[in-house]
Design a protein around this nucleic acid. Structure first.
Lengths: 208, 208
DNA sequence: AGTTTCAGTGTACGACTGTACACACAGTAC
DNA sequence: GTACTGTGTGTACAGTCGTACACTGAAACT
């Protein structure tokens, strides 16, 4: 097997596949996923409609790939946040900062998650809810390592983690709605977000 | 002017208008608003497509009326919750109970708010965000009356209120996703919701 | 070198979309 | 009783939709 040539063929396919995904992602800025047509996506990717089927069986399948992609990005953000908070004592400030930076860098992925989480497309909605539940569980086991949370029950940790994750996603939505990156409105959102996270945190020592 | 006859004409119009709104609302169970067609709504309302224009200039206009309707329902729920919590010492338990009851009674309205809050339709999204901000502000002034919050700043009260409102909307989404009303899964959602609200509340005395 | 594979093309179809227009006909006003 | 008003109808049109089918042509394999 000629590896280089073989790669070249696969590479091409991968390329148009990526273009389809990218086209869909950017079309989602002004449309919800369920209002997105296969033809529209194909057109934006510079490909004939029927070519779409060489890559995805349906729009739903493409959507699920986007869920995957987006959560890969989100998990990367969480890893950064964890790394940053280990260095800094200002856990909240650092986390929010990381979140803001990630949203700037991967706007489309975060927008996709935030918008489609409650969307009309049941397949995507459930996929995203499932992923968020996973992320939440991961955060819970992470929280368990903090000394002042060591004797909390699993269920309580889960609830706290879910609280944080939800707050996070809501912050993302607010950030997406803000007119300019780094503007005064964004600073307001950030300040409120930090305040709200702090309000949750101050309650932690008093639980039970 | 013959009042009775005149009413009869207006009444008829109001009736098909209500049918259009109701049809749209129930179609939103399986579709997001932006994936909803004018013809589909007219068909479900038992009316020819062109008749739609006698009542609404566009689907967006109908959507805005639904926003209005839905928030009227939500405000009613808030009034009930306030009345209930005055009677009960268990503020959280009472509020969640009222919320659950309201969601059972006006499922479609709550679903509409929860789903379209982050939807692809910018007009609806902004209308709903605006209404939620209003509700949040109202709650803030309400909270200001509690004795242990009397010396909080406006901004802090706002942030706390927003925290509660967001938690509320998230609970609604979880309730909507649950398979059966009153089932075990619903009880889980309720228990987690109460726990999360309690976690926020225990922090309140330690703020500042 | 000859054959096979397959990503992308082009055409075609019936179904559905929003909306323009002329019309019917019951309720209202005089 | 006559004229008017306005809700709902029916037809029509151009545009979009998803998808079936036959095809091309270059890369991959033998």
């Amino acid at each position: 097997m000629n590896t280089r040539a073989s790669q070249s063929r696969q590479e091409r396919k991968q390329q148009t596949r990526d273009e389809l995904l990218g086209a869909a992602l950017s079309l989602l800025e002004s449309n919800s996923f369920s209002a997105l047509s296969l033809r529209e996506v194909a057109r934006a990717a510079g490909v004939v409609p029927t070519a779409f089927y060489r890559h995805f069986e349906s729009m739903d399948e493409l959507g699920l790939v986007l869920v995957d992609e987006s959560f890969r990005t989100l998990r990367q953000m969480l890893r950064s946040a964890r790394a940053d908070t280990l260095r800094s004592e200002q856990v909240i400030r650092g986390s929010v900062e990381t979140l803001v930076r990630s949203v700037h860098e991967s706007r489309a992925h975060f927008r996709f998650i935030a918008r489609e989480r409650f969307s009309g497309n049941a397949v995507l909605r459930h996929a995203i809810r499932g992923e968020i539940r996973l992320v939440s569980t991961e955060l819970a086991t992470d929280l368990a390592r903090f000394p002042f949370l060591k004797d909390w029950g699993t269920e309580d940790l889960q609830a706290l983690a879910a609280l944080f994750v939800n707050a996070m996603v809501l912050i993302v939505e607010d950030l997406l709605e803000v007119p300019a990156e780094g503007g005064a409105a964004e600073q307001d959102v950030i300040r409120t977000a930090e305040k709200q996270l702090a309000m949750i945190v101050v309650g932690v020592p008093n639980w039970r």
